[in-house]
Simulated scan of single mutants.
Amino acid sequence: MLLKRLSIFLTMALAMAHSVAATPTGAPLDSRLRQAAATGSAQDVQALLRQGAAVEARDSRGRTPLLIATHHNNVPAAQALVQAGADVNAQDAIHDSPYLYAGARGHDEILAMTLAHGADLKSTNRYGGTALIPAAERGHVQTVRTLIAAGVEVDHVNNLGWTALLEAVILGDGGPRHVQIVQLLVDAGADVDLADGQGVTALAHARRSGYADMVRILQQAGARG
């Protein structure tokens, strides 16, 4: 009888333990921290860190909580993680880092945090480009201004053979934002005659696309061809 009662007790205890583990509150702390980084508050993040969640706990894609917060542009969560010592340069499986992703997506508040906490200005994404290149391509004017001021090399060439200036012309839409970015890059000393892998310059690309304002800026800067 005693053995039977003990067996029943153990069965009930295991069932209860399984039930608790299946609830969100019983989920691993690291997983809950990554969820808080995506959609939670700074207080949520801080509470989980106090409970022992790892600030650099990566998911199956190699993303840290800070990179996840950056993906969601969750500024309060990102700030809490940075203040807790999160690595702003930690890259995932496809070479994105909080710094690089914030720059590429124009998440300027998080970008400013990364720059203030040791962002590696020479780090590159999976295309071999700095944060400045996709920022220029996507028309993030303030981001481009911030990265230039931070000291990112304006003439860095990525694996496609393109600089920030070339991407702003080739992949931009020729509209006001990209025109302003071309002007910012020229003013920052970008080499206007640096050609792509096929030997085509930014000026030639601008002419082909009919981007008159870009043509004017490049010609005024002494571009040839």
Rank of each mutant, 00 (worst) to 15 (best):
L2V: 12
L3E: 13
L3K: 13
M12W: 11
L14E: 00
A15F: 09
A22G: 03
L33D: 11
L33S: 04
R34A: 00
R34D: 01
A37E: 08
S41W: 02
V45C: 11
Q46P: 04
Q46D: 11
L48C: 04
R50C: 05
V55L: 07
E56L: 01
A57D: 10
R58H: 06
S60I: 14
G62Y: 05
T64S: 15
P65D: 10
H72N: 12
A77I: 05
V82E: 08
V82F: 06
Q83S: 14
A84V: 02
A84T: 02
A90N: 04
A90Q: 15
A90M: 10
H95K: 11
P98M: 03
A102R: 02
A102M: 03
L111G: 04
A112R: 13
T114P: 01
D120L: 01
T124P: 00
N125Y: 02
R126I: 09
Y127I: 08
G129P: 11
A131L: 03
A131N: 03
L132V: 03
L132F: 06
L132S: 01
A136T: 00
G139V: 07
H140K: 05
H140A: 05
L147R: 05
I148V: 13
I148E: 01
A149D: 10
N158T: 01
N158S: 07
W162S: 13
A164W: 01
L165A: 06
G172M: 02
G174C: 06
G175W: 14
G175C: 08
P176C: 04
P176T: 11
V179L: 09
V186H: 07
V186K: 08
L194M: 12
G197I: 07
A206D: 09
R208T: 13
R208Y: 11
S209I: 03
A212P: 03
A212E: 15
R216K: 14
I217N: 09
I217V: 13
L218G: 07
Q219F: 08
Q219N: 13
